[in-house]
């Protein structure tokens, strides 16, 4: 065998797992879902090709209201994660010493060692009517009767921010890490005050990391299922819950598949808009960090 053949063969072999993964786990299921979503049920076991499932979504306000609500709450979660994550990332990357940096990063990672489910139950233990917070407040005497902190939007948002903030911090730390400290000093030296340096130098420099973190966090939040259900209960009306309902409760795969694609389209458009507005490209953000 010639050397070029060996090279080509090894390339194929190395590429094969990735190709199989994309094909079997991403493309094939989505193609199947797409096919199902475009079937209209006209009679039991009789289907026709059509957009009925998609049209249903727009005709039923409860469906698209849920999607809008999921989208806007995800945006809020993304914004809060950025607001909380940026100072943490800045501290880790630029202020903390070399030794404490590793420890701080590890502390951010530790929650990931516990599964989503356990973490959500942790919040439940804290927030429920008989939970830690309610009973401590009672014990201190600030409230007379137990208060239910669970099953409202605030609880859902808090839980989601807690779950996803790490995915904001990691890309931010990696971009800020690459920033020469003398850029900040030059910013001050040339006459900028704290807010100017932050607005004109640090944030523009960190923009790829900010956008990358926001994309990841937004996608994770909009597609999350466990946290909104467990912390928001019946009132959460998260769009993934609707999809779950269609598939499992109503056994209406056609409609569920259509909802799935609508969520994908919605989040993709949101990400595209975000990239356009921030003047970034996918290449300069997610691929770089």
């Amino acid at each position: 065998m010639r050397a070029t053949d060996i090279k080509r063969l090894s390339l194929y072999l190395l590429f094969a797992p990735f190709a199989l993964w994309i094909l079997l786990l991403i493309l094939l299921p989505h193609a199947g879902m797409m096919y199902i979503s475009l079937r209209e049920k006209v009679a039991p076991r009789v289907y026709e090709f059509g957009f009925e499932n998609y049209i249903n979504f727009f005709n039923e306000p409860i469906y698209w209201n849920t999607l809008i609500r999921t989208g806007s709450m995800s945006l809020l979660v993304t914004f809060l994660a950025l607001l909380l994550g940026f100072p943490i990332a800045y501290y880790i990357a630029k202020i903390a010493g070399n030794r404490s940096r590793g420890a701080l990063f590890l502390m951010c990672l530790i929650p990931l060692w516990v599964s989503d489910l356990i973490r959500a139950f942790g919040w439940i233990l804290l927030l429920r009517e008989t939970g830690v917070i309610s009973s401590s407040l009672q014990w201190v005497g600030l409230i007379g009767t137990p208060i239910e902190f669970l099953y409202n939007d605030a609880a859902v948002i808090m839980g989601l921010v807690y779950t996803v903030i790490l995915f904001m911090i990691v890309p931010l730390v990696s971009t800020l890490d690459g920033m020469d400290k003398s850029l900040i000093e030059a910013g001050y030296n040339l006459g900028g005050n704290g807010p100017t340096v932050l607005r004109r130098i640090i944030i523009p420099y960190a923009m790829p990391g900010i956008v990358a973190g926001c994309i990841v966090v937004f996608m994770l939040t909009a597609g999350s299922y466990l946290t909104p259900i467990l912390l928001g209960g019946k009132n959460s009306s998260w769009f993934t819950e609707q999809i779950y309902d269609q598939f499992i409760t109503r056994y209406n795969w056609e409609s569920g598949a259509a909802f799935g694609f609508l969520l994908l389209a919605f989040t993709s458009i949101a990400v595209w808009l975000g990239l356009k507005l921030s003047g970034q490209t996918l290449n300069s953000t997610v691929a770089d960090t």
Partner: peptide, 11 residues
């Protein structure tokens, strides 16, 4: 100040 690595703002 002109910094050692100049610190021109890349963005």
């Amino acid at each position: 100040m002109v910094f050692q690595h100049l610190a021109l703002f890349p963005m």
